[in-house]
Design a protein around this nucleic acid. Structure first.
Lengths: 333, 333
DNA sequence: CTGAAAGCGCTTACAG
DNA sequence: CTGAAAGCGCTTACAG
């Protein structure tokens, strides 16, 4: 009952344990007849190899680590979905490591290393370029294959799967510009990190090209805090368009604008990033950049499996396509 | 670099590997002086025990499995947060197992068993009472401690952490009744499962007590599909209150009602379950039952650690408190 | 308080 | 194609 070992199988099948092991790992090396006999016994006894013992002996755990800073974010769970599906296809298990604010990233990563994982997926869009470098070093030093998922790094030696956030930022700003908006704000986060830096870069580029002044307003990611911040806007600022770096920021901004009697999209166009459920449940529906989060998870996991099997990987930096979903919060011609 | 073994430490400290192991696992059995010396070497060498080898030798993996059917659900990620925090406190690692629709639950659970986990948390609110029984059997047969998180089971031998969904259903219905609503609908899911069965039971009880006719409308969990379903409502049905078994259902219902010119809360009161971000970002803000999802995760994990250490656990069935957050989608006196 | 030795359940060269 | 044996890196009685 759950504790059948390879010895039991060997005994019952009248072979050595080495043969049983081969049937499991290199079936082609075992004579058809023997193999069938062993397989039959395995089934009868309901034998499942102890993955721990296997891990120790083979030095492979068929387990990958997922490092996350904030499990709570909507995008994370979808990414986990993509990762999980592909991991299951390739028979990998998934172990979760969450980084809490009060913890040292290096320390966690050392734990991750001690876990004898075959590879690691690092999901965290709130990483600065400098932190990325530290992370890279730890994995390289320990020779652990890794992939950054939905994190941007300019270092060409860093394997990553992402969308082109700069381009996305540029495009959504162009939508506003083409609609003749002049005072276009980017609502970004107070804390700087690489992904949002890219969005800001794209936004700024589009604004400058159009001869407009870029206006980045930094706010908290917390919807409650935002209410206060945003309230000031409609007293003293000229504004006819706003782009939130997250849907939740965009929606709460839009709600507050409407509370202040501003018409969306007539007087104010609003757009977000990520195309989450929030975008669909808001009124008016929110125009948003669709980020294929599930795919980012799935593709990173697939890239990681390649890296783990050290196949010659042609492209370790994958940029997935995004697109703009236009809805009622912007004026669409 | 990363592959220092216990032998290296023993050699450098001039002791046997048994002593090193004791320093790590039973420090009180080692003389202060020796212990310090070993500890120093461990630090210098950056030694971290190989968890796999430890797992094989001790037959404990300090890893718990989390079985989930749909990672994508908002509640799941928050629950993961609670689980992760407590797991980290107790030094447990967390391994994720997601069940896809096309998979056999038993098969997955057999895998889970083969993983040599110290315990399992089963998070899935879409389990019928019958499925719960199967799940229970597998764990009991294999003597693996387990806890159901946010799943309801009437079997008193099943460890679980949940809120009293029946009571919650009753209370929110009472809110509507006390506001003199007569045609109160419960918007539930097409697929039946224990948690929603409880909500329905509470709703039905309150309605019958008040001499009103219970009206349960079953719909898809998918917001897109709902739109069609819901549209029919405002043509032929009398309705002045609606309770969605999920916030997302409630919000999309509310949106469609407003599109049909119905005033919320004047002509229609709406409430949801779970008090997610949707409830806050909707207009009007949604009245909702606050389910302490993070706590459910944390408490289940704590209960599981008790079970794994087979302390005499006094209460294996924990009901966490919920409360109603009244907002603008209901009329509040 | 410490060490020598067996054992956890596998994999994998090495022979044959 | 198959078996005997060593080894993966630890833990844990058992002696002393």
């Amino acid at each position: 009952m759950g504790n059948t070992t390879i010895y039991d199988v060997a005994g019952a099948a009248g072979v050595s344990l080495a043969t049983v092991s081969r049937v499991l790992n290199n079936p082609e090396k075992v004579k058809e007849e023997t193999r069938q006999r062993v397989l039959k016994v395995i089934k009868e006894l309901g034998y499942r190899p102890n993955v721990i013992a296997r891990g120790l002996a083979s030095r492979k755990t068929t387990t990958v680590g997922i490092v996350i800073s904030d499990v709570t974010r909507a995008s994370v769970s979808e990414m986990l979905g993509g990762i999980g599906d592909i991991a299951q296809n390739y028979k990998y298990s998934v172990k979760l490591f969450s980084i809490r604010e009060d913890m040292d990233v290096n320390d966690i990563l050392q734990d991750v290393v001690a876990e004898q994982l075959d590879g690691v997926l690092y999901l965290n869009d709130e990483l600065s370029e400098k932190s990325v470098e530290e992370v890279r070093r730890i994995f390289v030093d320990n020779q652990i294959p890794y992939v950054l998922a939905n994190v941007v790094s300019d270092d060409p030696s860093v394997p990553m799967v992402c969308i082109d956030y700069e381009k996305a930022g540029y495009e959504i700003t162009k939508v506003m510009i083409d609609d003749n908006r002049k005072d276009i704000y980017l609502l970004s986060t107070a804390r700087r990190y690489s992904v949002n830096d890219k969005k800001e870069a794209g936004y700024t580029k589009a604004m400058l090209e159009a001869g407009l002044e870029p206006k980045i307003f930094r706010t908290s990611g917390d919807t409650h805090v935002n209410r206060q911040h945003f309230a000031t806007f409609f007293k003293d600022k000229k504004i006819d368009a706003a782009i939130g770096v997250r849907d939740s920021i965009a929606v709460s901004f839009m709600n507050i604008a409407r509370d202040n009697g501003i018409k969306v999209p007539e007087n104010l166009a609003v757009a977000g990033f990520q195309n989450t459920k929030y975008a669909l449940l808001s009124r008016p529906n929110l125009t948003s950049i669709d980020v294929p989060v599930y795919d980012i998870g799935a593709v990173s996991m697939r890239l990681l499996t390649k890296l783990m099997n050290s196949k010659d990987v042609d492209n370790i930096r994958i940029s997935l396509p995004h697109y703009i979903v236009k809805r009622d919060s912007t004026r669409n011609k």
